[in-house]
Nucleic acid binder design. Structure first.
Lengths: 231, 231
DNA sequence: TAGATTGTTAATCGATTAACAATC
DNA sequence: TAGATTGTTAATCGATTAACAATC
C-alpha cells in the first residue's frame, strides 16, 4: 500500500491510478479513439463490448479490461455510451488539451508533416518550424512560420511548446535532443532514425522508425517467396 | 511432425522453419540490423550476446533466443561473427533481394518518401509513382517516373513489383487495395490511416499509423502533466 | 422482475528471463 | 586443457482470455 492510499482512505479513488497502465494498453487507446469516431459518424449512441469486439477484431474481454484501467466507463446491462466513452478517451489522449508542437527540420518529411491534417484532427497545434536553410527561414508552410534554428531556445523560452517533432538529419539528433532537454518542452516525436532514450532527462520520447517498419514488411514478403518456392 | 520433416529426415534441417517465428521476434530484427551496421562501422568483427545486450538495452538471453529462431548464427566460446551475422539478417530481411516498390499517391508524403534514402539503404527500389493529377503525370521525382493511376494494372502486369506504398487519401484505400490484390504484388505498406487486413487476399500488409503514434506521445505528455499537478 | 452486460477475479497462454549443459 | 559463450531447456513474468458474480 502506497502512502497516497493511506492519506486518502476515505475518498473514492478519484482518477484510478494511471501509473501502472501497461504500454500494451496505451498503444491500443488510439485505435479505440478511431473506432469510436466511426461509431459516432454512424450515429450510434451505445455499444457493447461484444459488438465493438466484432468490429475491431479483438476480444470483448480485452476491451473491458483495457477500459477498466482508467475507471468504469460502462454501465452493467447497457454497455458503453459512445459519446461519453469517446470524451473520456479524448481526455486521456490529450485531444482538446491544446498541445503545441514545433517541427525541427524543414526538409521533405518535415514539410509533409506540416501540411498533414493529422495534427489538427488530434488537437495538436504546430506553432513553428525550425531549419538552418536561410532560403527557408522567413517563409511559411501552411501558415506556420519557418524560423532559424538559432532562434530555438529563445522561442521555447517565450512560447508554450509541449513537443518537438524531429525530422532533421540523423547525425544532428543527439545534439538537438540535448538542446530540447534544456527547455520546458515535454516530449519528442522522433523521425530521425537515430533512436533516443530518455535516460538522462525526463523527456517523453516516441521514436518512429519507418525503416524498421519497411523491413518487417520485407521480411514477410521474402518469407512468402521462400514458402512458395519450398512448399 | 509435419510432412516436410518426414521427407527430409536425413538432412540437416536446412532453413530452420521460419514459420513459427513470433511477430515479437520479427519486429526486433530490424533493430539488430541497425546495431550490426554500427558495429561494422566501428570495425568490430566479433560480438558476444552480453556485449550486444549492453549496447541494445535488452537481455543477452533474448538476443540468443531471437537469433536461434533462425539457426545457430554464433559459436560457443566465441560469440557472433559480426559480418556473418549481418549477412544472415540481411538475408532474412530481404536486403539484397532486389525488392521493387511503387508508390501510389504523389502527394506530400508520397513525394517525401520517394526522396528518402531509406529505401535505397535497405535495398528496395522504387520503380514508379502513380497519381491522378495530370500536372504530375509525365514528370519525375528523384528519377522515378510519375504515371497515371489508370496505367497501374498494365504496369503491374508488365513489370516486377513486390510492394505498393499507399499514400493516397483514406477514402480511396479500400478500392486501391482491391486493385492491388488483383495483381502479382505481394505486399502493401499502408500510410493512409485506413487500416487494412489481409483477410480476403494473401497480401502481406504493414499498416503505419502515424496518428496513433502521435497519440501515444500525447498520452504520456498529458499523464506527466497530471502527475506534476497531483503529486 | 428478468435480461443483458459490465467489472473483476481466475485460468490460460505466450513471451521474456534465468540457468546450465554442450562445445568451441 | 581451461575459459568463454552459445544453444536450449526450465522458471518466471506479464498479458490475454474466460468465467461469473455484481448490478443496471
Amino acid at each position: 500500500m502506497k502512502e497516497k492510499d493511506i492519506l486518502y482512505t476515505t475518498d473514492e479513488q478519484a482518477t484510478p491510478s494511471k501509473e501502472n497502465v501497461s504500454t500494451a494498453v496505451i498503444k491500443r487507446l488510439p485505435r479505440y479513439f478511431r473506432y469510436l469516431r466511426i461509431l459516432m459518424r454512424e450515429g450510434k449512441t451505445r455499444i457493447s463490448s461484444s459488438e465493438l469486439s466484432r468490429r475491431m477484431n479483438i476480444t470483448a474481454s480485452q476491451i473491458r479490461q483495457d477500459l477498466n484501467c482508467f475507471g468504469g466507463f460502462g454501465q452493467q446491462g447497457y454497455g458503453y455510451n459512445v459519446n461519453y466513452l469517446y470524451a473520456r478517451i479524448c481526455e486521456l489522449l490529450g485531444v482538446g488539451a491544446g498541445l503545441q508542437a514545433v517541427i525541427i527540420g524543414g526538409g521533405n518529411l518535415g514539410r509533409a508533416l506540416a501540411k498533414n491534417e493529422m495534427f489538427e484532427k488530434r488537437g495538436v497545434d504546430i506553432v513553428a518550424i525550425f531549419d538552418v536553410d536561410e532560403n527557408l527561414v522567413g517563409t511559411s508552410i501552411n501558415d506556420i512560420p519557418i524560423l532559424h534554428i538559432d532562434e530555438f531556445e529563445r522561442y521555447a523560452a517565450t512560447h508554450t511548446v509541449d513537443m518537438a517533432v524531429l525530422t532533421l538529419p540523423k547525425e544532428q539528433t543527439l545534439d538537438m535532443a540535448h538542446r530540447i532537454a534544456e527547455t520546458d518542452i515535454s516530449g519528442i516525436w522522433n523521425f530521425t532514425g537515430q533512436e533516443l532514450h530518455s535516460i538522462e532527462s525526463d523527456l517523453v520520447i516516441e521514436n518512429v522508425h519507418l525503416g524498421d517498419s519497411l523491413m518487417t514488411l520485407n521480411y514477410r514478403i521474402v518469407s512468402k517467396y521462400n514458402e512458395d518456392r519450398n512448399g
